[in-house]
Amino acid sequence: MINNSYLLGLAGGVLIGLAGTIYLLGNGRILGASGIIGGLIDGSGRSEWRDRLLFIAGLVAAPWLAITWLGLTPTTHITTNPVVIVSAGLLVGVGSRLANGCTSGHGVCGISRLSLRGIAATAFYLLAGGVSVLVFKHILGVI
């Protein structure tokens, strides 16, 4: 039997791909979450602040609407350890901006364009993510 989570993963993935498609073909922009957020934070994307804010509004509101109206169940298991949360947040923020992209920009948009930078970035963050889980879960036992 096919695992239900695989099908949901595939369906959700297609939705993510369609979001990137209309952003590219409609507005001529690459859908990268860290770039859209970061451009607002550090002022580098000030000229497009309205589009960025509306994108973020949709990103925050749509899951909430789907949960309230369609009855979708949100599942998340974020750790309650504040030291882990703050450390991880800082690493994700600094790293994604220094690399100029994260899972959406480099992973989805970069790989689909066969961009060398996108493919290399994805290899690097998958490697670091694997090592991170190995160290913090199996060796140190903090997550």
Partner: peptide, 14 residues
């Protein structure tokens, strides 16, 4: 790109 992605990945895993 390399260092940033490694830092990002470490936080993503954490």
């Amino acid at each position: 790109l390399a260092v940033g992605s490694l830092i990002f990945g470490a936080g993503w895993g954490l």
